[in-house]
Structures are given as C-alpha cells and as structure tokens.
C-alpha cells in the first residue's frame, strides 16, 4: 500500500491495507484519500508515475462522476421519471419465495441475449446491482432493515430496499422502449404489511405502480404450509387494496416460482389467490415460472419470467397513447415524490 488514508474513522486501510467496506482494490473505495504528494492516476500530465503500479488509480479530483450502478433510491427514480415514462413494478413475496431469482433470471436473459423477440436489452442504470445479485454477492444483511425505499444508494451501502432499472426495446418497426423500475425489497416487507397497518406508508409509492408481481413458491403451495402462506398473501393483498389504496386497475401477477419442481402444474391454491385478488377488484393472472430450472433440458431457464413483465406492460396499453404519456411524464414524478413518505 502506497500510503493514503480513509475518511471513515473506523477504517484501518492506512495500516492494514484492508478496506473496511471490503473493496477488492482499497484505493478505489470512494472514502479512500491518497497521500498529499501522490499523483492523480488519470489526471496528471506527467508521463511518469511515482506511485506503485496498481495501487493508486483514484483521481483526487474527478472531472465527472457517474451513477454507481447499484440499486436506485426514490430520488434517483424521480430523476428518471422526470425525463421519461418508466414502468414501476412492485415485486413482493415471502422470504425465499424467489424474488431475487426472478430479478437475476430476467437479467441473465438480457445478459445472454435471450430476451424473447422482439425485445432487446437497451441499457441499465443498475448493471452492477444485477451482477451482484446473480453472483450471490448482495445478500440481505442481518438485523433490522429500513422500512421504506431508500432515497439514494451508493457503492458501499449494504443491500437496502430499493429499485433496479432495466431498459428494453423492441427490435421491430415500432421500436418502443420500456424503462422498468422494479422493487427489490426483503420478504419481511410482505409479512410486515400483512400484520400491521402502520407499515402501509412504506408502500404508498405503489399508488403509482404499473403492476405488482406476487411471487409464491410452488413447492409451498403444494405443501401443508399452503394454508398459512395463502392467508398471509390474502392479508397482504387486502392491505394493498384498502390501506395502501393501490389503484384497482393495477394488474397483479401471481408468479408461481420453482414450477419445474411441481411438474409445471398450477397449484389449486394459486388460482384461489388469483380469484381472491380479482374479488378485491384487481385484474390478476397466474403465471408459472422457472427462473433457474432444475431440469433445463425439459424446462427452459427463465421460463415465465418475461411473461410476467409482458403481462404488466401490455395491461397498461392505453398508456402508450402519446398525449397520455406526456401527461404522465409531467405528473408521475411529482406523484411519486408525494408517495415516497
């Protein structure tokens, strides 16, 4: 380590060379500060460097900073929605139901050029966040988690309730672009809302949602635990309807995960949940999914994942009307701002 200190008083990088925030290259941690006499790894005009190669790449004065590529907070989302229409999709479900697998599988489809035709990957402000999830690097930390979406996230934050961004575009003549903002929240949120109305404030942003995906584990729905799981999701859905006041034209997808393990048969209780949600006044449909297929030769990886996205995108077909879009671009950021709590 060629000198340097950290802004964080608890970090011992100066003496141990180890970054408190586990940055693989400690000098690239945003809190790292090089010694006063160190050259700027990029900005110097000098052709030589007195710095040990590979130890100092962090410009002391950046001319331009870019988004972190991690999760987005509500303020970040508002900025995006100020510029263009974005489809906000809430993804909920019990712990281990398969929410992260759903997001990772969607990303892997894009990463491998496997989004169904005519859709193509068109960009993402959270590429690193997707990568981290797919690599199992971004687990929920132990202990209490924030009860609402964060405003901003930065590189060194632990995983927090936030949003992921993925832009897709049609490759056909229409070439429509869809910017998806998808929630990434822990399973506890689903349970907490079901149990306490006081948690409804955290969900108010869903009044702006274009769709809600309820992820339910197919194995659970075929087991003795199905009654309790179904009851929990009924409570949750009712809270969304009555206490969060999600608009009744917001489509719900009941995504039955791990369908490859249940013989691709829709569990009866999944349809019961769908009917319950329809009775609350929401459009709802059931979709089987195998985000990570255990039998890829028979059931394709990612099966059903994009169908859930399509079900939401095309339920909102009237919003593709251009004059309506202009209104939404102007209206929704403010609305979202109001809802974020």
């Amino acid at each position: 380590m060629a000198g340097g200190t950290c802004e964080n008083a608890d970090c011992t990088v100066a003496t141990t060379g180890k970054c408190l925030l586990s940055q693989p290259v400690p000098t690239e941690c945003p809190h790292f500060r090089p010694p006063a006499n160190a050259e700027d790894g990029l900005a110097s005009d000098s052709g030589s460097s007195t710095v040990e190669p590979g130890t100092l790449k962090m410009p002391t004065q950046a001319a331009r900073k870019f988004d972190w590529g991690n999760e987005l907070g509500t303020q970040d989302a508002i900025e995006i929605m100020s510029a263009k229409y974005a489809h906000l999709i809430g993804i909920f479900g019990s712990t281990d139901a398969g929410k992260t697998c759903f997001l990772s599988s969607l990303y892997l489809m894009a990463s491998g050029g496997k989004l169904p035709s005519p859709y193509q990957f068109a960009g993402s402000l959270t590429l690193q966040a997707f990568e981290d999830r797919a690599r199992g690097l971004r687990q929920w930390p132990n202990g209490a988690l924030p009860k609402q979406l964060v405003d901003h996230t930065v590189l060194f934050d632990k995983r927090q309730p936030s949003l992921l961004h993925l832009a897709i575009r049609e490759s056909n003549m229409e070439r429509r672009r869809f910017d998806l903002l998808m929630t990434d929240v822990p399973g506890e949120w689903t349970k907490d809302l079901a149990l306490r109305v006081s948690n409804a404030a955290s969900f108010r942003f869903l009044q702006r949602a274009d769709g809600i995906i309820l992820v339910v584990d197919g194995n659970v729905l075929n087991s003795d635990q199905r009654h309790a799981e179904l009851q929990r999701l009924r409570y949750f859905s009712e809270r969304l309807a009555t206490d969060v006041q999600v608009s009744r034209d917001t489509p719900f997808v009941i995504l039955v995960s791990k369908a490859d393990e249940i013989g691709m048969q829709v569990p009866v209780s999944a349809d019961e949940l769908r009917d319950y949600i329809r009775n609350l006044g929401f459009p709802a449909e059931t979709i089987l999914s195998a985000a990570f297929s255990r039998k890829p030769a028979e059931i394709e990886n990612g099966m059903g994942v994009f169908n859930a996205i399509e079900a939401i995108l095309f339920h909102t077909a009237p919003r593709n009307n251009e004059s309506h879009l202009v209104d939404e671009v102007q209206h929704y950021p403010r609305t979202f701002q109001r809802f974020k709590g």
């Binding site: 790894g41 990029l42 790449k57 962090m58 001319a63």
Partner: peptide
Amino acid sequence: LPGEQVLSVFRTRQWSNEWE
C-alpha cells in the same frame, strides 16, 4: 491508456480531466 484505467473508471464511476 492501459486497460487498468478503463477498468478503474468503471469501478470508481468517475473520470478525470484527461478523459473529460
């Protein structure tokens, strides 16, 4: 510029005047 700097800009999400 060496590939290390291209990777460094990617990781640190910023660049200096030399790029700007």
